[in-house]
Design a protein around this nucleic acid. Structure first.
Lengths: 119, 119
DNA sequence: GACGAGTGTTCACACCGCGTTCACGGTCGG
DNA sequence: CCGACCGTGAACGCGGTGTGAACACTCGTC
């Protein structure tokens, strides 16, 4: 409830401090995430996407903002890169912690990181 | 009781400041509502309807006014969109906070937003 | 230089949620 | 009993999103 943005607030955009939310731990210096005690190997893009979302855990991050934050430019219309990478990260997270969902879609807005048990 | 319209008064129509009433928090920049600590996913229409009502929390908002505020035009006779969306928003709010009612019907006039324990 | 593994991008198709409208039922007052 | 009004579920077209696959690029190794 109140732990939503606690860890996120301290981290500057690109900070090296580990981000810890529920059973998820993100280690910027290693490009590694640990979920439910399991190490999850992520590529650079995957890792930066997860970090961008986790830094604002509990809040909806707009597609525009997400793209410029990870890809470093304006979002071209028709670009589906975000969708593809959200899918990849979802797969890996949920594989490490079955029965939980982490990245929630907000149609027309963007995505929200928030570990929750699946319905 | 006395906190009813406090947060709403400060927000200009379309302001980006979060609206907070009782256990309900509305975040305009995210299209997200948080009720009793639970994130409630709302579509664009649902969100704007809730915002329009919450901005005038405790007051009855006429159907005419509600429609022009959310749909942006005059209310055509026979249009039931408002009823449908009030129903959708009610469902989601009450699912997040069982035992409470939030949107009250004033037949012939309109609707009133006011979180109250169910009878 | 040829090769393969890993990564990032683009494409095509399937699917689902959104917004609108229709249909039926219930409630209330005249 | 009838009409006005609202609650509620469902059908439908459409656009946004999920998802698997093909393609292109980089970087080691041999």
């Amino acid at each position: 409830m109140s732990t939503e943005t606690r860890a996120a607030d301290a981290a500057s955009p690109g900070g090296d401090e580990p981000i810890r939310i529920a059973q998820v731990e993100i280690r910027p210096t290693e490009g590694l995430a640990v979920v439910a005690g399991r190490a999850v190997a992520l590529s650079v893009r995957e890792f930066e996407l997860l970090s961008a979302l986790a830094r604002r855990s509990g809040h909806v991050v707009a597609r525009e903002e997400l793209f410029s934050s990870v890809w470093g430019g304006p979002l071209r219309s028709g670009d589906r890169s975000i969708d593809v990478y959200v899918h990849k990260v979802r797969q890996k997270l949920e594989a490490a912690s079955p029965g939980w969902s982490f990245i929630h879609t907000h149609i027309g807005f963007g995505y929200r990181f928030s570990p929750e048990p699946m319905a």
